[in-house]
Nucleic acid binder design. Structure first.
Lengths: 238, 238
DNA sequence: CGTATTATTGACTCCATTCAAAGATAGTGG
DNA sequence: CCACTATCTTTGAATGGAGTCAATAATACG
C-alpha cells in the first residue's frame, strides 16, 4: 500500500510538470521508458547545492518543486546569476562541453529535483528516439534564453526590471502559480547580480514602479497592479 | 579525374577542420558516415545570409571558410551581434527550440559552409551514436560561450575590448591563422554591437590600447604587440 | 573625381555606481 | 518576551564612465 503511494508520487507519468518538463513532447509509452531512468531526489534546503561549478558532469537536472539559482563567478569573484529556475526547468546542459558544470545550481528555498544520469543518455535516446529531439530542444531553449538575456544586457535598469518582473510572472502563470502576486526568492543583491545592476539600483527601481502604481512592494513580496504597464516599459511604445 | 579531385575536396575526412568541427571526437569510420550526410555549400559573398531569424530550422551549419556574424535584433531594432563565427564553428542550435532560427547568420566576407540537415539528425545519431554526444557538446559549447559573454556584459569597456581581442587571437591561433596580426572583419559599429558598446567607445579604447603600446591599429588591421598586457587588463591583477 | 561609408576626436550629458548612513526584518539565545 | 545581532533594504549625495551629439578626417568604391 505504501509502495503504491510511493510509486504514484515519483513517476514521470503522474508528475504535474509533464507539459513543461522533459516529458512534454512524448507519448505515454515513451514517458514510461523515461521514468524508469530518471532518479528522484529528495528535498534540499535553502543554500544547498544541486551541483557546483567544476563538478564532473554526471546528470541533467529537472527542478521538481521550489526554486534555484544558476550561478557563475566572474574573474573578480562577483557572482553573476545566470538564471532563476522554476519547477519543470532542465539544467546542466552547460556541463557537456568540458564534462564539468560551468556554473553552480543553488536552492533558493526548500527544493526537490530529478536527475537524468549522463551515462544513460545514449542508451535512453537509442530506445526512445523522441527524447533525443526533446533533449535538444531543452538545450536549445537554454541557448535562446541566454541569448535573450545577452540582448537585454544593454537596456536601461528600468527596462531590465520590467522584463524580469513580467518574465517571472509569465513563467509562474505557466506553472499554475499566481502570476500577479508572488514572493521573489532573491535578495536585492541577487536580483542585481542577475540583471547586471547594483542592489541599490534594484531597490530604487522597484520603488519607482510602486510610485507609478505599477506594482506594490513589501520586501520580497510583489503584487503586480498593472502588468501591461510594465510591458509597455520595454515594448517600444515610444 | 576531376571527380576524384572533387571528392577529395568535399569530404569531412579530408577537411582541415577535423580537429575543431563536428568530426573532432570521431573515428575514421564514423567520420565517413557523417560525411555522407553533410551537404557542402559553395561560396557566398559578404552581406549574404546563411539563414535568417524566423526561418524554419532545417539544418545545423558549420562554417568552412571565411567568417560570419550571428545577429539578433532587440525590440528597438538595434542589432546585437551574438557571436563572430570562424571556420569550424557550428551554429543553428538555437533553432531547435521553436523550430525556427532565433538569430540570423550573415557572411562578413566571402564564406563557405556545410549543412547537416535537420531531418537526418535522428537517423544519423542512430547509426553513429558518438555523433549524438558530439552534437550535444557543440550545443553545450554554445551555451558556455553565451553564458560567458553574459558574465562579461557588466565589465568595463576597456575589459570588454581586451577580452574580445585576446579571445579572437586565441581562436585564430587554434585554426592556424596568425594570432598576433589580423584583420577584424567588423566595423566599429559591429564591434560595439557585439560588446554592448557604442562605436565611439570602441574607437577610443582601441586608440587607448595603441597609446599604451599594447596594439597597433590601422583601421580593421590589428597588430598585437603585448598579448599578456592585454590579458592583464581583465585577469584581476589589481 | 565625387559620393558613401567608416573612423576619429571633442565637448557635454546622464544613468547607474559608489560611498555612506539609517531603517527594517528575521533569527537567536538568555 | 525582549534584547542582541546579522542580514537585508531603503534613501541620499556625489562621482564617473560610457553614451550622445556634432564635426571632421580617412578610406573605399563606383
Amino acid at each position: 500500500m505504501s509502495r503504491l503511494i510511493k510509486d504514484f508520487q515519483v513517476s514521470c507519468e503522474n508528475c504535474n510538470l509533464d507539459a513543461i518538463c522533459l516529458p512534454r513532447g512524448l507519448s505515454q509509452k515513451e514517458v514510461e521508458d523515461l521514468s524508469i531512468v530518471v532518479k528522484r531526489h529528495g528535498m534540499i534546503q535553502k543554500g544547498e547545492y544541486i551541483y557546483r561549478q567544476g563538478d564532473e558532469f554526471n546528470c541533467i537536472v529537472a527542478i521538481k518543486s521550489g526554486s534555484a539559482k544558476l550561478v557563475a563567478n566572474d574573474v573578480q569573484g562577483n557572482e553573476y546569476i545566470l538564471n532563476v529556475l522554476l519547477p519543470g526547468e532542465l539544467i546542466g546542459f552547460d556541463g557537456l562541453y568540458h564534462s564539468q558544470y560551468n556554473s553552480s545550481a543553488v536552492a533558493l528555498e526548500a527544493t526537490s529535483f530529478c536527475e537524468l544520469p549522463a551515462d544513460q543518455l545514449e542508451t535512453l535516446c537509442m530506445k526512445v528516439p523522441s527524447i533525443f529531439r526533446e533533449l535538444f530542444k531543452h538545450s536549445s531553449e537554454a541557448i535562446n534564453d541566454t541569448q535573450n538575456q545577452l540582448i537585454n544586457s544593454k537596456c536601461t535598469a528600468e527596462e531590465k526590471l520590467a522584463i524580469f518582473l513580467t518574465g517571472l510572472s509569465d513563467r509562474l502563470k505557466k506553472r499554475g502559480f499566481s502570476s500577479l502576486q508572488f514572493n521573489i526568492p532573491l535578495t536585492r543583491q541577487e536580483m542585481g547580480g542577475h540583471l547586471g545592476l547594483t542592489l541599490e539600483t534594484v531597490s530604487r527601481m522597484l520603488k519607482q514602479f510602486q510610485n507609478q502604481g505599477l506594482i506594490s512592494v513589501k520586501r520580497r513580496y510583489i503584487e503586480i497592479n498593472d502588468l501591461q504597464g510594465l510591458r509597455d516599459i520595454y515594448s517600444g511604445s515610444d
